[in-house]
Simulated assay, not measured.
Amino acid sequence: MDLGFECILQVKIPVTDLRRSVNWYRRVFGLRLAWEFGEHGVVTGAVLTDDAERFLVGLRRLDTVAGEPSLSGFDVVSLGVPSVDVLRALAERFDELDVDHGPLLDRGPGGGVQLDVPDPDGTVIRILSPFGEHEPFTGVEFGPDGAPSFYTTPRLELD
């Protein structure tokens, strides 16, 4: 069913140090500060965007978020790039900026290639190349060594 959605426009990430995180996202991803939000005279959130305003990254001070979630090590969002060559160029950029990142990881049949970069709080920003041809459903299980194995019948029992 088409509900009319075109894309995910914004992702909002809780951060421990708003200024540090705004500076990091600006430096690493070339984003610009588009909005700030405040409460009681204190800036508690910010929204950054690319120059074409194709996507927004919202950052919110962790001490103002209900439940104080921890996303360290979790890939809360995946950004798409047009090719593996772009991923390679990004990895080189991150190296030049001395920004920690994971290796280029082939996700297997039809899964594209990924590059993970953790932000200052450890929240992972995953960057993906286009997916190749793939089955209508593919399951992936990661073994103890991190190697993926694939299956074609869903294991999740759905209603």
Rank of each mutant, 00 (worst) to 15 (best):
T49N: 10
D50Y: 04
D50C: 08
D50S: 07
D51S: 14
D51L: 13
E53W: 02
R54W: 07
F55S: 05
F55K: 06
F55T: 08
F55Q: 06
F55R: 05
L56A: 06
L56W: 09
L56M: 07
G58R: 00
G58E: 04
G58D: 02
G58P: 04
G58V: 00
G58F: 00
L59S: 03
R60Y: 05
R60I: 00
R60P: 00
R60L: 04
L62N: 10
L62H: 03
D63Q: 02
T64A: 00
V65Y: 03
V65L: 03
V65W: 04
A66W: 02
A66G: 04
G67K: 01
G67R: 00
E68C: 09
E68Q: 11
E68N: 08
E68M: 07
E68K: 13
P69R: 06
S70V: 07
S70N: 12
S70D: 13
L71T: 13
L71H: 10
S72I: 00
S72K: 07
G73T: 06
F74Y: 12
D75Y: 08
D75R: 12
D75F: 10
D75A: 14
D75S: 14
D75C: 14
V76P: 07
V76A: 15
V77G: 05
V77P: 10
V77T: 11
S78T: 11
S78H: 14
S78E: 11
L79T: 12
L79C: 06
L79S: 07
G80T: 07
G80C: 06
G80D: 04
G80V: 03
G80F: 04
V81H: 01
V81C: 03
P82W: 00
P82G: 02
P82L: 01
P82C: 00
S83I: 02
S83V: 02
S83D: 03
V84R: 11
V84P: 02
D85W: 06
D85G: 15
D85F: 06
V86G: 02
V86H: 06
V86P: 01
L87Q: 08
R88C: 11
A89L: 11
A89N: 13
A89T: 11
L90S: 07
L90M: 13
A91K: 14
A91H: 09
A91E: 12
A91P: 09
A91S: 15
E92K: 15
E92M: 13
E92V: 15
R93W: 02
R93Y: 01
F94R: 05
F94T: 07
D95P: 01
D95S: 12
D95A: 13
E96M: 12
L97V: 09
L97Q: 14
L97A: 08
D98R: 14
D98Q: 15
V99E: 13
V99Y: 10
D100Y: 09
D100K: 14
H101G: 08
H101I: 05
H101L: 08
H101P: 09
G102T: 12
P103D: 10
D106G: 10
D106W: 01
D106M: 09
R107G: 04
R107S: 08
G108V: 04
G108R: 10
P109H: 03
G112A: 04
G112S: 06
V113C: 00
V113A: 00
V113M: 00
V113N: 00
L115R: 10
L115T: 10
L115S: 11
D116F: 07
V117K: 05
P118K: 02
